[in-house]
Write a protein that binds this DNA or RNA. Structure first.
Length: 650
RNA sequence: GCGCCUGUAGCUCAGGGGAUAGAGCACUGGCCUCCGGAGCCAGGAGCGCAGGUUCGAUUCCUGCCAGGCGCACCA
């Protein structure tokens, strides 16, 4: 694509490219470049990177794999990236690439020197806008660790996509008109509960929500009150609706506060009440009726409803009643209907827009906007190429309905660009459930689901506070010279690192069984381990004599012809950062980047133990200082992508 | 009943058609005259079961077993 101007960037892609070319030239074979296998060999004798491609092709080419490997080896040698110094072939048919680490280091140093904190970024997303919706906590109670997983995943995803050049708009949807808020209003208004002065409002609501739901079961008349409140909220312009708005506002404040503590920021708050009052659905309804894609049923189970027919789609064929009702026989819209209108707005195809206002400045210095009943017109929001909804796996069916409905309603492109970022939920281990006072009894279950309705769950700020406390003890023990405030500040950053890493290190299909013991760990494969690696590197660099530091420049530092194994490993890992970042962003898989970053830190830890820096010979010391500078930059960039604070001391 | 997801070391998880399946925790034994021991090195132990496809399966397909979650004119 770019001729043969080699750069270590996407080292693997370049080798795939070369293999592809050779395949074309020698065998007139065309394979998808991503399908050309490359792997890290188990033994150093087999090189640094190798391909079993000949084995794969032996069948189709009807030749012994070893012969194919040898022929390809010959062709490959005619034009090699500078950091490949040798190609060997081993039985039964592997092509092995051996790096020239001095040349690789040169190329890598150049890139870091030029790009600095942008090292590793890509530009594949240039000119494309993505709307990412995450957090979306019902504004009726304190946030818990399940919400934390959602926010950490969503925020990391946003950071990764931004670093691929995408224009990312992060939205946090606030359902301020739903049953959840109504239940709190029932408690405050009808049961006349009051929040004690010394209790944070979100915590008070956590308990109130549980109480109200318990009372519903005992007293059906109270459940009637919920319906009444919902009607009043929808109608607006009354005392109850006002109270609901107040509740939602206060709770959202708490939610934003904890998320900001976690380093999670947003661009826009979208309020369901605005969607409601602006008539998003009614507007969409008219459009869809005009286009004839909605069906009015006159018979069958859905008689009297407007539906979207999903029965002929493969996903829904076997369902008992596959069609989705959007407008009930009483004329009201279902939740899915509103969701469709909202999704249409995100893509800029609704033909209607919100009004906007500044919500305020976030701690990172960016402005948070909000939809508002009496705001201003603005054109910058929505209009996405791609929409990613970060919602747990349990919503899969509904998200499928949403996407397929768009498809059936004639918005094929938008349907194809509607992505459900689905992740498994967080549950509680038996030990943690017990600690929270959940009745464990004799049923011996291993895991306990969290439940807002039943008040079962670990609150996000309890989690953070416990983590901070633990980290404070550690920091205070190590740094008696620092003030308690400094201890607390550092501990906070460590806690954020620990929690964020914990929340994204599992892949999305993996159910997190939350256990305090494990989650509070700061050893091994954890966030603080990454931060510790950074602090150690920074510590060495801080001890470099100024006159030495002056002469170390990544761009012209002399790189020894012979490098030690830990040096080579470190160079290789660092050079892989752009590849991993791009892959994690493309596959929407934050855990891949977490894993990479852990490997990078571990590789450095090994280097740290094995290779002296400040006590080495002058020329070697200078090179190793440069290596550490590059490491600090690379790890720092990776940490930034993960939203984990990089610390000079800890 | 139908659909989706998951079964890998004692525990929590990576990996994924190819050369000896990797981490962390826990356990055992080592490592500070040397840049911070939140660390490093070493050790034991594992792909749910049965078929199939393939030169090659832990990976792909089918069935079974076990667990989780979904399948509204609720939000």
């Amino acid at each position: 694509m770019e001729g043969h101007t080699y750069h270590f960037y996407n080292l693997e892609n370049q080798l795939q490219e070369r293999l592809w070319e050779v395949l074309k030239a020698e065998y007139a074979l065309f394979l998808a470049k991503e399908e050309i296998p490359l792997e890290t060999p188990p033994q150093p004798e087999f090189g640094d990177l190798s391909s079993p491609l000949p084995l794969k092709l032996a069948g189709t080419l009807r030749r012994p794999p070893l012969k194919i490997a040898e022929k390809m080896q010959g062709a490959l040698q005619e034009d090699l990236p500078p950091f490949i110094e040798d190609i060997t072939v081993t039985a039964p048919g592997y092509i092995n690439f051996h790096f020239n680490y001095t040349s690789l280091a040169r190329s890598f140093f150049d890139a870091v020197a030029v790009e600095e904190d942008r090292y590793g970024e890509g530009k594949g997303g240039k000119g494309k806008k993505i709307v990412i919706e995450h957090t979306n906590i019902n504004p009726n109670k304190a946030a818990h660790i399940g919400h934390l997983r959602n926010a950490c995943l969503g925020d990391t995803l946003a950071r990764m996509k931004r670093k691929q050049g995408y224009d990312v708009e992060v939205q946090n949807y606030i359902d301020d008109t739903g049953a959840a808020v109504a239940d709190i209003v029932v408690g405050l208004y009808h049961l006349e509960r009051e929040c004690p002065r010394d209790v944070p409002f979100d915590r008070f609501c956590w308990d109130l929500y549980t109480e109200v739901n318990r009372l519903y079961e005992e007293d059906p008349a109270l459940k009637e009150k919920e319906r009444e409140v919902l009607h009043q909220i929808e109608a607006g312009d009354n005392e109850v609706a006002q109270l609901a708005k107040e509740v939602a506002n206060k709770i959202v404040k708490h939610h934003l506060d904890i998320m900001w503590h976690m380093g999670v920021y947003y661009n826009l708050l979208t309020w369901e009440s605005d969607i409601l009052h602006l008539g998003f659905w009614e507007h969409a309804f008219e459009r869809l009726k005009e286009e004839g894609s909605l069906v009015y049923e006159t018979e069958g189970p859905n008689a009297g409803c407007w539906v979207v027919k999903l029965g002929d789609l493969e996903e829904f064929r076997d369902l008992e009643n596959p069609d989705k009702v959007l407008v009930r026989s009483n004329g009201t819209a279902t939740y899915t209907a509103k969701d469709i209108a909202y999704q249409m707005w995100k893509f800029g195809i609704l033909g209607k827009d919100f009004l906007y206002d500044r919500h305020g400045l976030q701690p990172d210095g960016t402005v948070l906007w909000t939809t508002a009943p009496y705001g201003n017109k603005m054109t910058r929001f929505g209009q996405a190429h791609e929409v990613i909804n970060v919602i747990d796996l349990r919503q899969k069916y509904l998200q499928d309905v949403l996407r397929l409905s768009l498809h059936k309603l004639g918005f094929e492109k938008e349907a194809a660009h509607s992505i459900h970022f689905a992740y498994e939920v967080v549950s509680l281990s038996a030990a943690t459930a017990q600690e929270l006072g959940v009745e464990v009894e004799g049923d011996k279950k291993e895991i306990y689901a969290m439940s807002g309705r039943h008040g079962i769950g670990v609150k996000a700020d309890d989690m953070l506070e416990r983590m901070v406390k633990k980290a404070t003890l550690e920091v205070a023990a190590r740094h008696p010279e620092m003030t308690p405030e400094e201890h607390r500040k550092l501990a906070h950053d460590i806690a954020v690192g620990a929690i964020r890493y914990y929340m994204i290190k599992y892949n999305m299909n993996s159910l997190i069984v939350f256990d305090f013991n494990e989650a509070l760990s700061m050893q091994g494969n954890t966030g603080p381990y990454l931060q510790y690696a950074y602090a150690r590197a920074a510590n060495i660099l801080g001890r470099v004599e100024p006159e030495v530091a002056q002469v170390v420049d990544l761009r012209d530092i002399l790189i020894p012809a012979e490098l030690t194994p830990p040096e080579r490993e470190l160079i290789r890992r660092m050079a892989e950062y752009p590849t991993f970042l791009a892959r994690a962003a493309r596959l929407l898989q934050p855990s891949l980047l977490a894993e990479y970053t852990y490997d990078l830190a571990a590789t450095f830890m090994n280097f740290y133990e094995e290779v002296p820096v400040l006590t080495a010979q002058p020329h070697q010391m200078r090179f190793r200082i440069a290596l550490l500078q590059a490491f600090r930059q690379t790890l720092g960039n990776a940490l930034h992508t993960l939203g984990i604070p990089a610390l000079l001391r800890m």
